[in-house]
């Protein structure tokens, strides 16, 4: 009898005094008949919190499309002028434009929701208190701003 709970275990004759136990009694038959609910395929629509989570996850797919588009552009550039011009013209396609705008929105969603979540990952203890969530999030926005400025001026310098 060394399982965590007896509820599942079989009777045994173990133990120091078990030697004198006259064999096992037949195990009683369980009357359990648990009902096992299943998770619906659409569980992520069930409440606001799940929907926000689903949006955060989906946003990465859209951002992924944008990255794919950029990779295609790089390949085209490598292939030569004609190929590159085809890719540039592709960028003005209404469908592509829509997707690009969507990608901008979704990358904002992705960034903000992840920044919002960072206090759970980064917890800075100061004495007997933790640095407030606000400052952890603010720090991320600050870093983003610094990074954006550096990139901007670097590109501007070119």
């Amino acid at each position: 009898m060394s399982t965590s709970t007896g509820a599942r275990q079989e009777p045994t004759g173990a133990g120091r005094t078990g030697a004198r136990s006259p064999g096992r009694m037949p195990a009683a038959e369980t009357h359990r008949r648990p009902y096992r609910p299943t998770t619906k395929r659409t569980w992520f629509l069930a409440n606001r919190e799940y929907r926000a989570y689903a949006l955060r996850e989906v946003s990465s797919v859209v951002v992924g499309f944008f990255v794919f588009n950029l990779v295609v552009g790089l390949v085209c550039l490598h292939r030569g002028l004609e190929s590159w011009q085809w890719w540039v013209s592709l960028q003005t396609n209404p469908l592509n434009l829509t997707l690009t705008v969507l990608a901008v929105v979704m990358s904002l969603v992705h960034a903000t929701t992840w920044f919002q979540a960072t206090p759970k990952i980064i917890r800075i203890q100061r004495g007997t208190r933790y640095v407030a969530d606000f400052w952890v999030v603010a720090q991320h926005y600050l870093l983003l701003a610094v990074f954006a400025a550096v990139v901007y001026f670097w590109l501007g310098g070119l």
């Binding site: 919190e49 799940y50 989570y53 996850e57 979540a117 206090p119 759970k120 990952i121 917890r123």
Partner: peptide, 26 residues
């Protein structure tokens, strides 16, 4: 754990399991 975060929202004792799990991942 995919960091839905609902565990921490519903915790009646403010335990924040989502934080614990993310820290365990780290």
């Amino acid at each position: 754990c995919t960091f839905v975060g609902a565990c921490s929202t519903v915790c009646p004792k403010g335990v924040d399991p989502a934080a614990a799990i993310q820290q365990a991942k780290g």
